Simulated scan of single mutants.
Amino acid sequence: MNDLERKILTAIKQQPMATQQELAAALQLSRESVAGYISRLTQKGAILGKGYILPNANNIVVLGGANVDLTGTSTANFRMGDSNPGVVNQSAGGVGRNIAENLARLGNDVSMLSLVGHDHRGRFLIEHAREVGISTDDIIQHPDFATSSYLAMNNEQGELVGAIADMAIIDQLTPALLADKLPRLQAATTLVVEANLLPETLSWLAQQKLSAPIIADAVSAAKAPRLIPLLAKIDVLKVNRFEALAILKKPETDSSSVEQLIDELLAQGVGSVLLSLAEQGVMYGDAEHKYLQSVPACQIASDTGAGDALIAGYVHSLKLTEQIKPRLGFAIACAVATLESKDAVSTLLTETYVCQRFADFLTTTEFPLTELESHSNE
């Protein structure tokens, strides 16, 4: 951004309702010149579209899927091919949406860029997002496709016996549709993406001039290879072993060590890797460091959503400390808080709750608990 662009942006901040002619008079420029600079500032993401809407200083954009989860659990011995008495629950879900909710509950300014239908489930997701603190300005409602839905059936022991995923709408989140949202992506201070997006969408994203660090979730071994065109732009990649193997085009029987897999991902241009090892913890790796962080003891209620909380916790920790070990510790604490919840996103999750619930564990990772407590008391 050059000096004149900075002056125009400062003038807009001081008079956000000013017309281009009024800005031109104040800056002693022609209206045409001001219009041209405003157009360029919009392309750079310094202005968010019409009305001179300016982005917040710290804003996270999550680009990914949002769906409604419908779960039916039998209250009696489950009989296949028959109607079973039970309980049906509806909740908000989706990898990207779960990450966004975790970030919002941790106190971040987060916006969800996703696609829902013009239907009651789409309205449910938008309303739920607003309730938990996610900005919905960038959620697009598609006129022709139904909101993404996941229908699961569990037996009387809570074990999955069958499921149907209706998620065709996510394939409509194409480069053509996202082109109008490019200023929003360019204005983000952190961009979180996930592999439910189409390969061509991720390829398009790799071609854009974005200043924000990109955090990516591989989602599954089947979808992880979609991230390949984006690897050189990814600052933090969260994978498990099978997802790493899929990205590297290795068979599941490959005997490479965790360290070797991380090194190969780094060689593809990834800035750093969070490799989940389930109950064994998480291995972090970048060009200079490798750390294995174990998981604190906990009472597991459900493992759904723990990975989404892990990546959200790590993103949040970026503003809490510059040290890698404490960041990793905080991320794992967020994941464990979710393991202890029956919900995919723990309703207890806040920065304060995580620091209090896992104080002993975080101390072992040299997390700055004292500094945060002092800050919260100011």
Rank of each mutant, 00 (worst) to 15 (best):
E373D: 12
C298K: 04
P199K: 07
H118E: 11
D180W: 03
N102G: 14
V258W: 04
V295M: 14
L362H: 05
V110E: 02
R97K: 08
G269D: 01
T136Q: 07
S317A: 13
R130N: 06
L173A: 11
K342W: 13
P225F: 06
T321Q: 01
T350E: 05
R6Q: 09
L173E: 06
I140R: 07
E322N: 15
N155F: 12
G64R: 01
V88I: 14
V95Y: 00
T363N: 15
A206V: 08
V258I: 14
A100E: 04
Q293M: 13
A26I: 04
D144W: 13
E127M: 10
K325N: 13
A100G: 10
A278G: 11
S33Y: 03
C334N: 12
D137L: 02
H128F: 02
A309W: 01
P199Q: 06
G107W: 03
L41T: 06
L191F: 01
T370Y: 09
H316W: 07
A267F: 00
A335M: 09
T73A: 11
Q268H: 14
P229R: 10
V34R: 05
T71R: 11
G122H: 03
L318P: 03
I12H: 01
A188L: 05
H289V: 13
K250A: 05
N155C: 14
Q207E: 14
A176C: 12
A168Q: 15
T321P: 04
E200N: 11
I324G: 01
L182T: 04
L198Q: 10
W204L: 14
V68N: 04
T365D: 07
F358K: 03
G307M: 13
M153S: 08
L160E: 06
G117W: 01
T189W: 08
A221K: 02
S272Q: 03
C355E: 15
E156T: 12
A221Y: 08
V354L: 10
G49A: 10
R357Y: 11
L266A: 09
D308Y: 08
S255K: 13
D109C: 09
L202Q: 02
N154Y: 10
E378W: 14
N196S: 07
R226K: 15
S91W: 07
T253P: 08
N155R: 12
Q186P: 01
P85Y: 06
